[in-house]
C-alpha cells in the first residue's frame, strides 16, 4: 500500500487515488494536423522506465485534484509531488 503525498491533502493511502500514467503528455493542439502515427503515439505510447518516472495521480476520494509526482519504479520510493502547470522539480538522485 503506497503512501502518496497529495500536494493539497498531504500523505494519504493509495486506495484514495487513481493512477494517470506518464505526466507531461499534452493533448495535441491540432489533432487533425497529425498523421496516424503521431496520433497513435499520443493515444497509446507511454514510457516505462526502470527508475525515476514522472507520473500523474488523482486524489479521487478526497480533494479530486490531479497532480504529478516522481516515483522510482524499482522500489516505489517517491520523490516530490507537484501541481499541474508548475515547474517540474528535478529528477531525484
Amino acid at each position: 500500500m503506497l503512501l502518496i503525498n497529495c500536494p493539497w491533502c498531504g500523505p494519504r493511502d493509495e486506495t484514495e487515488f487513481h493512477y494517470g500514467s506518464e505526466a507531461h503528455i499534452a493533448y495535441p493542439e491540432k489533432p487533425e494536423e497529425l498523421n496516424d502515427e503521431q496520433w497513435a503515439e499520443y493515444i497509446f505510447i507511454r514510457n516505462n522506465p526502470k527508475g525515476w518516472y514522472a507520473e500523474r495521480w488523482v486524489h479521487t476520494a478526497s480533494c479530486r485534484r490531479w497532480f504529478n509526482v516522481w516515483r522510482n519504479t524499482i522500489n516505489h520510493e517517491f520523490g516530490p509531488s507537484y501541481k499541474p502547470f508548475t515547474k517540474q522539480p528535478s529528477r531525484p538522485k
Partner: peptide, 13 residues
C-alpha cells in the same frame, strides 16, 4: 465525473 475533471484540470484550466 473523473473524466470531466481530468480534462478541466490537466488540459483546459
Amino acid at each position: 465525473l473523473d473524466w470531466l475533471e481530468e480534462w478541466l484540470q490537466t488540459e483546459w484550466p
